[in-house]
Nucleic acid binder design. Structure first.
Lengths: 151, 151
DNA sequence: TATTGTTATACTCTATAACTATA
DNA sequence: TATAGTTATAGAGTATAACAATA
């Protein structure tokens, strides 16, 4: 039967919905939206950087980053500092509150790992990871093919 | 090691991003946004119905449905018909174009099943489905607990 | 009185285009 | 001439609150 394969996709689609809900709860508690949290996450990985870098990393326009940073400045998660050598650029810099928020996101993620996989036998987790590796590869390929086809 | 469990969550998070991208491509080709496609999908399942029903099914406010239906009417996917017995309500009804769009969504989903799982052995698919069943259960429970805790 | 859907208002995310200041 | 970030404008999705018409 092919029913299991259809069911597998249905499960993955439901998963995206539920993961989104779960994320949203934690973010709201921290006073963040998804997009702002994503920026903060990238910023934490890169260290203080110009907005241009964030725009490239997030895959959005420079204008969008202006808006996201505006919101994060207003709510106290980052500041705009002067760039030491390029006076066109600003150095987006996390505040202590911003750093704490990233730590909270990280903790939430670790907690979620425990909730979802803590009781799953190691062999089963390994099988899942192996299967998902292939699925992700094929999904990336499908997206690339679609993007290429409409070029 | 717990590395595999962390990796499993990372994979699932990446999956949500990629599935979203893949969806978006197909929807744009049909002239639909995600929210409007979701409404159309629910509408197809329920048959012509009042906006109130759609608001409940989508988990959004009545106002939001007004906006979504406005957009779908403007782009020719649905019409607002008079309700036969309740003159307060409208019957949102798919047009032929709306029905064709849902058929296209369904076909795209079937194609994706083939791309992602077509070459995966049945036993591996069955294992995936079994594992994901448990994961989804625990995720639902975690969300319910969070919602209950902040009540 | 309760319900359906609307107008009014506001916030977030996103985009393109034109512009300023600086490299 | 090219780049960083802004203002200007627009569209989509979401929400609350007040209101009209109808049940």
């Amino acid at each position: 039967m092919d029913g299991d394969r259809t069911r597998a996709l249905d499960q993955l689609l439901e998963l995206t919905v539920l993961l989104g809900q779960d994320m949203a709860v934690g973010l709201a508690r921290d006073g963040l939206t998804e997009s702002r949290a994503h920026l903060l996450w990238v910023l934490d990985a890169s260290g203080p950087c110009p907005q241009r870098h964030l725009a490239d990393a997030l895959g959005v326009t420079a204008r969008t980053v202006t808006g996201l940073v505006d919101g994060l400045v207003d709510t106290g998660f980052v500041t705009r500092e002067t760039h030491p050598t390029d006076r066109r650029a600003t150095l987006v810099t996390p505040t202590p509150r911003g750093l704490a928020a990233v730590a909270s996101l990280r903790a939430g993620q670790a907690e979620l790992v425990g909730q979802l996989f803590g009781d799953v036998p190691e062999a089963e987790v390994a099988a899942l990871v192996g299967t998902m590796d292939g699925v992700l590869d094929r999904l990336r390929a499908a997206i690339a093919a679609e993007a290429g086809g409409s070029r």
